[in-house]
């Protein structure tokens, strides 16, 4: 009974169902009572189900959001990290090229370092690169989680 009443109130009844409701409203007291309760709730829901924030809040929210966005720092750390990495990598590569090219350098006379030291420098450089990649990936994941709560 109630299902048919709500269907009628939502305007989803077929012509046959409309006729059935209208007939019952004339003849069935229990149906009429149930209809009146449902109709009264429907009217109230139309009026009261939606909620609005105050205009003051909306204006205030805009200001707060603009403030928050202005305070956000530009990502300056990341390029600096990359510059540092490239300098270390470039210097190491240059050193290797000069020392182990088999020819005597005519313009740079660098001290010959122990091969173990050079290996260590190389490992440190590549470990730095690996840590940076992990760090960037982790920050991206955390940022997504923070902003959306889920991966959308």
């Amino acid at each position: 009974m109630e299902e048919l009443i709500w269907k009628y109130l939502d305007g989803e009844c077929s012509p046959e169902e409309i006729k059935e409701v209208e007939d019952k409203l004339q003849s069935d007291t229990a149906f009429l009572k149930a209809y009146q309760s449902a109709e009264s709730l429907d009217v109230r829901l139309k009026k009261g189900a939606t909620i609005k924030a105050s205009d003051f809040f909306i204006v205030q929210m805009k200001t707060r959001i603009h403030d928050e966005l202005s305070q956000q720092k530009a990502p300056v750390i990341l390029p600096l990290k990359w510059i540092l990495f490239l300098v270390i990598l470039g210097a190491t590569g240059l050193y290797f090229a000069i020392q182990y090219s088999g020819e005597e350098s005519s313009f740079l006379h660098l001290p010959v370092l122990d091969e173990r030291v050079m290996t260590m420098v190389t490992w440190v450089t590549f470990s730095f690169l690996l840590l940076m990649i992990i760090d960037i990936g982790y920050k991206k994941i955390m940022q997504m989680r923070k902003f959306t709560g889920v991966f959308l």
Partner: peptide
């Protein structure tokens, strides 16, 4: 978005805070 937040929280102050948070999340993401 305020309407959605209010319907979950049923409190004006909390809904306002959550709405601001949600709006920021949309902008950031």
């Amino acid at each position: 978005m305020y309407h959605v937040c209010y319907k979950v929280l049923l409190n004006t102050d909390e809904a306002e805070e959550a709405t601001q948070d949600a709006v920021m999340k949309v902008i950031q993401a």
